[in-house]
């Protein structure tokens, strides 16, 4: 059929190519852009959903953590109170025990002192009678005669009181 000229202008060919461009525009819009944009919108919705779910999960976790922390703080206070009570109890008990022990010890000491006093008195009595006997015998021997206890009672008592005094001074 031959060829067109290298440069030729044909009205209908121009119209055809104009329509071709419109056609390819519609094709690209309908078959490439519409599905891809739809898919991108779906993906965006999905990602947004994921994000909101994640944010919700995070909020839940934070709330739970806060609750746990509160509980934990309560437990700590309770434990502190318990320990304080126990310490107070123990202090009280130890004070009681100490005072009891002190009383007991005091009792023991007093008894021991009274006993020691009694013993001392007894021993003094004994020593007194012995010294009276010895001194009577010594004086009998020295004087050559029997000293009547009743006569010299006064003398002996003086002596003894002197001895006792000197003992006291020595103490």
């Amino acid at each position: 059929m031959g060829n067109l000229e290298v440069i030729s202008i044909n009205f209908w060919n121009i119209v055809i190519s104009l329509c071709n461009l419109l056609l390819i525009f519609l094709i690209v819009k309908k078959f490439l852009y519409a599905p891809v944009h739809k898919m991108l919108a779906e993906r965006k919705a999905k990602i947004d959903g994921d994000y909101t779910a994640a944010a919700k999960a995070k909020a839940d976790a934070e709330a739970q953590e806060a609750a746990y922390r509160q509980k934990l703080d309560g437990a700590k206070e309770e434990a502190d109170a318990l320990i304080k009570a126990a310490v107070a109890d123990a202090d009280r008990r130890s004070d009681e025990i100490l005072s009891e022990a002190k009383e007991k010890a005091d009792g023991i000491l007093r008894r021991a002192e009274t006993e020691a006093d009694l013993e001392m008195k007894k021993a003094e009595e004994g020593i007194k009678t012995e010294i009276v006997g010895v001194s009577a015998a010594l004086a009998e021997k020295l004087l050559g005669r029997e000293i009547h206890e009743a006569d010299h009672r006064v003398l002996i008592d003086d002596f003894l009181s002197e001895v006792g005094n000197s003992d006291d001074q020595r103490k």
């Binding site: 059929m1 060829n3 067109l4 000229e5 209908w12």
Partner: peptide, 30 residues
């Protein structure tokens, strides 16, 4: 060096419409 080959010519008002290689190739590309 020549222009597009004419396959057939459609008579149209104003000017005849030649269906050429360039039109056919455009449609193939589309």
């Amino acid at each position: 060096i020549a222009g597009a080959q004419i396959y057939f010519i459609v008579p149209m008002p104003l000017q005849d419409m030649p269906i050429t290689e360039s039109q056919v190739n455009s449609w193939l590309v589309i």
